[in-house]
Design a protein around this nucleic acid. Structure first.
Lengths: 145, 145
DNA sequence: GAAAGTTGATATTTATGAGTATCAACAATC
DNA sequence: GATTGTTGATACTCATAAATATCAACTTTC
């Protein structure tokens, strides 16, 4: 039943998400403010979380609590995802891209120009597909093949 | 005068290094125990630091104190350096490499087999050339060109 | 339309990671 | 050979990051 829910469909309210993850709603909003997650937003501005979001958040929790990586550390690690290789932006665009030229926070926390302007970061695979738990290194490997 | 010193020549004792960096000798040994640095060792086992080591340590300090990245975060970031691309190890060797297949600590903290067995990590460019301050992202960029 | 849930903001608590202190054994220096 | 510095190990302190609590204004729900 719970298994039949689509991974990407935002259906859990913040309080339900918090209960499932055994954390507080405040912590969820804090992760968002830090740029670690991008929950879906209803027209009324209320947040909704999908199963994929919950898995992602659990990875972040493990990084903080088990691996003892600070939030700023996680932001820096996310900033190393080779987004330029994933979205295939041009040399010209790279020169002009804040994300390409910095390494303090994830690309999806910047105001976008260029290719990324038309993309919705929540659905972009830089954010959605590759930024969980151990697989950032897998992505770097893949990009250097 | 100080400028004429070779960057790579290990000449500073631990107490001198600590004084120059304005930190304690204990902190220097702690960074080493954590695998962040590899000082030169005399036959008597005493440590010596080169100018390049001091610069590297200053970068680590800035990451901890300014950027607020935890030591475990720095170790994880170091583990993302595409060493496989730098030392050009084979597919076969990669399958068998603890560093390639993990992302918790830098490659130079593992017991080495394969290509790296003959290398001295302190002199290896994975450690020496590319692991300072902001240039890990530069290296990933370079590897994905 | 009353109750339950959400919003962002600010203030506060607490768990712990980074750094320090102390130690006896050993090495270097003059 | 006496002084100064180094080694690793264990125990301790302190600064602060992560998490919590509280708030009034706003939404959703039945």
């Amino acid at each position: 039943m719970y298994d039949s829910i689509d991974n990407a469909e935002p259906i859990f309210s913040i309080s339900v998400a918090a209960r499932l993850l055994k954390i507080s709603v405040h912590t969820l909003r804090m992760y968002e403010r830090e740029g670690l997650i991008i929950p879906f937003k209803k027209d009324s501005n209320q947040r909704l979380y999908a199963k994929a979001d919950l898995e992602r958040i659990q990875c972040i929790r493990d990084a903080i609590n088990q691996a003892k990586i600070s939030i700023n550390g996680i932001k820096t690690i996310y900033s190393l995802i080779p987004c330029w290789d994933i979205v295939k932006c041009s040399e010209e665009e790279r020169k002009d891209c804040s994300s390409f030229n910095n390494a303090q926070k994830p690309c999806w926390t910047y105001d976008h120009k260029n290719v990324c302007k038309e993309r919705n970061c929540r659905d972009c695979e830089v954010y959605s597909k590759y930024s969980q738990c151990g697989n950032i290194k897998e992505l770097i490997k893949f990009s250097t093949r």
